[in-house]
């Protein structure tokens, strides 16, 4: 297991350099951040100078990249025009985002697996069909539409929660945005759990377990679920990116003061420096979480571990 983790860590290094290079390539190789400025920003020499300095626009592209990556390694994600450190903004906002994302993860895993298992057990019955239809709608509906609808429903119509902000703390202020954030992934977790459990229950080793005279409950848990959860964990790894995008929109709409909301505001205000800084951070977190997911799948599946 230790060797597996080390090997995966080593694989991350080139990918990390590659992805940060790609981010920087998108920022300044295809054009210049100065092109997207609004007319009044263009007339402000201080702002032009700020951008030129932040992105090292006077250097050749490859030098720009190495200066940027050097800053990332020293923990410097850039400075806002107002002079604030992006790193510090991110650090103060991190706990809020972590709480929101953690709540969303619990919702999608607990609800998703339970509904998926029940749907598989009642294959073709009303519960199964209903959960599949709802799951499809959650997949198709854009996050921001679901956010508005639930904000209106729970925050205004029913008045159960304050529609925006986190004044009521956890869990009341977090539950609706967390559900919105989780909805799309929840739908996939339901579908994958159901599908994978149905496939697992059809395998030879389930037949063996029955021939051994194990009770049905033990077979479902120890043989069925244990094997079916591997694809769910793999999906979580793939889905982290979508969750990050979702966090930007969700925190923006529900006014949850996390990193996503900062990115949301910065996009609206076209603050390229902050956008690049936060996306870089997201990329790093994305890689680390993927490593974690790989480790968990390896723990669940010995065949990956000994590959």
């Amino acid at each position: 297991m230790g060797r597996f983790v080390v090997r995966r860590l080593l694989q991350i290094i080139p990918i990390f350099f590659g992805v940060t290079f790609l981010v920087y390539f998108l920022v300044s190789a295809l054009g210049s951040p100065l092109d997207t400025l609004s007319p009044q920003q263009k007339r402000n020499p201080a702002y032009l100078e700020y951008l030129t300095e932040q992105f090292n626009l006077n250097d050749p592209f490859i030098v720009q990249y190495f200066k940027y990556i050097g800053n990332v390694f020293t923990g410097d994600l850039g400075t806002t025009f107002a002079g604030e450190s992006v790193t510090e903004i991110v650090i103060t906002r991190m706990p809020v985002t972590a709480t929101l994302a953690g709540t969303a993860l619990v919702i999608e895993l607990v609800l998703g697996i339970v509904i998926g298992v029940v749907a598989a057990r009642r294959r073709g019955k009303l519960f199964d069909n209903a959960s599949l239809v709802i799951a499809l709608i959650f997949i198709a509906i854009p996050v921001f539409v679901l956010a508005f609808v639930l904000q209106w429903l729970f925050g205004i119509k029913l008045g159960w929660v304050v529609p925006t902000g986190i004044s009521e703390g956890w869990p009341l202020s977090y539950i609706v945005p967390a559900f919105v954030l989780a909805a799309g992934s929840l739908a996939y977790v339901i579908r994958i759990t159901r599908q994978s459990l149905l496939e697992t229950l059809n395998t030879d080793f389930i037949r063996t377990a029955r021939a051994k005279g194990l009770p049905a409950g033990t077979i479902l848990r120890r043989y069925g679920l244990r094997n079916s959860l591997i694809p769910v964990v793999v999906f979580l790894g793939l889905d982290i990116g979508a969750l990050m995008t979702g966090a930007v929109v969700t925190e923006g709409i529900f006014n949850v003061p996390g990193i996503g909301q900062q990115l949301f505001t910065s996009i609206k205000q076209q603050e390229a420096v902050v956008i690049v800084g936060i996306v870089t951070l997201f990329v790093i977190i994305f890689q680390l979480l993927n490593l974690l997911v790989d480790v968990i799948s390896a723990a669940l599946d010995p065949r990956i571990r000994y590959e």
């Binding site: 590659g18 992805v19 998108l26 990116g241 995008t245 990329v283 994305f286």
Partner: peptide, 10 residues
Amino acid sequence: GLPFVLGAVV
């Protein structure tokens, strides 16, 4: 390694 909507945002 780069979530595509975030990349598009950048």
